[in-house]
Amino acid sequence: MDTRLNTTIGNLNLINPVMTASGTFGFGVEYENFLDLNSLGGFIVKGTTGEKREGNAYPRLAETPSGMINAVGLQNKGVEFFCKNIYPIIKDKNENIIVNVSGSSIEEYCKVAGMINDLDTIPAIELNISCPNVKQGGMGFGVDKDMAKEVVSEVRKVYKKHLIVKLTPNVTNIIDIAQSVEKAGADSLSLINTVLAMAVDAEKQRPLISTITGGLSGPAIKPIALRCVWQVSHNVNIPVIGIGGITSASDVVEFMLVGASAVEIGTANFIDPSICKKIIADLSDYCDRHKLNSITEIIGKI
């Protein structure tokens, strides 16, 4: 293990800055044939809601230039199923297993957060106030600074460990939202969630996904994500986790240079299920070439 890659997100200690993004990594076990889950800085499991959700109708996916649009719609078996059936299987697979928490009401967010709070080996939750896929879901909270503040404040009351809040880029001023969430008690921020987008089939003259609009991810959104991370990290006093189109160690470095303390890899896991292993190895190589004693030296240099 290369200790030069150690980083922190507030009180969370990571062996390296490479985590995986919610919704792209299942519960981790899906990837065990491809990499050692313990070699990751952490992983964020699938979005979990208060009750079971079937998600959206097929088709849920459209491949678009250098990216993809998804509209899964938070299909999951609910928080009780997670605590009872999934947690016991994964609980010792990594020091930083983080649960992505979602809901369509403040009560639902608080129910999920409260139940996850009782799980010993889960040190943090990532509050999804931004998912653009669910009609009655997160979107409303993440695009309005007062609503964002309210949901984070209420969850803060029931959740005692590290609270990450995941921000949507689909807003007029992401700094306003970030500062509002910081004031409400977030320990760190992760950004960006997917970019609201659309794909159309010209021949069939129809939208390519069942919900018409969905969330764009992949390399196509990296420049937007870098801009958002740069804006936010210089205007809050809590750590920032960078997400958006990362496929290589140099992408990780770019996000750290603009202020991220760690990153989440998302869509790239679909392209190469062992990509994180390569990225981590290449980060050591970057440290060699740039004579870094710690990868954290580059955080926020830009």
């Binding site: 919704g23 299942g26 679909f270």
Partner: peptide
Amino acid sequence: NRMACGIGACLCCVT
């Protein structure tokens, strides 16, 4: 069905 991951992680190819 249209797939992204092929290993049951993304939940895009559901029927």
